[in-house]
Design a protein around this nucleic acid. Structure first.
Lengths: 114, 114
DNA sequence: TTATTATATAAGTGAATCGTTATATAAATT
DNA sequence: AATTTATATAACGATTCACTTATATAATAA
């Protein structure tokens, strides 16, 4: 099986970053659906700056990328990242978090960014 | 492929624990060789309490286990851990750290615990 | 039994981390 | 042009974390 070896210092940095429940859940959600900031704000019931700061860290390491769509900024997993294989491997061990998006849809909050 | 799903809160805890260069390197080394505390002290060139504290955290989560052998306590990976498959998966992405043990042997320091 | 060696624990300190509030920027709407 | 909506950044406080020094425990050797 192909495995890109990752320098242990960089690997520790990535794992530390993913070692936060909010960020780990974000990444798991992004694994199946792109999302904008406002959706995460609803999902995690925390402040918008807190969400932006988490996304910034993920973006700084190249784990996620952003695309502007009008006034919204859509985040997605960066599949070109050298860390993507590791991230994918980790995510396989986690249960789907899609129910969080489904709750949003029930409340009609997901549509806001589409 | 069998994957044991890990609750996302526990997964974040595990990843945070592995998100430290010293602990991650320890676990990678333990993946191929059992080690005692004094070896880690030499390898990481840090204090004995610092090493003991790292091992304590890994032990508390069940990632490593210990066996006393005379005055030494030998640490090894706990392959029965529910987190072992995840840990294994992560370690596959890391380059071998055996060279650190080999350096010890050159200095005749590894033999001390055998 | 005393000293030595290996390891663990406790307490304290400085740095890193995460959330908050306040403010800035940028696009869309009026 | 002014307002609103979405997002980012800055500054600060509380908590967490990893290390240090000092001390405790436990096995071995003298």
């Amino acid at each position: 099986m192909h495995k890109t070896l990752i320098d242990i210092t960089n690997a520790a940095t990535i794992l530390k970053l993913l070692g936060d429940k909010t960020r780990l859940t974000m990444v798991k959600i992004l694994d199946s659906h792109d999302c904008c900031v406002c959706e995460f704000v609803e999902i995690f019931k925390t402040s918008q700056p807190a969400i932006s700061q988490h996304l910034r860290k993920l973006k700084d390491l190249g784990i996620v990328k952003e695309t502007r769509r009008g006034q919204w900024i859509i985040y997605s997993l960066n599949k070109e990242s050298e860390y993507y294989p590791l991230v994918q491997n980790i995510l396989q061990h986690l249960p789907s978090q899609d129910f969080k998006l489904q709750e949003l849809e029930k409340q009609g909050l997901r549509i806001s960014c589409e």
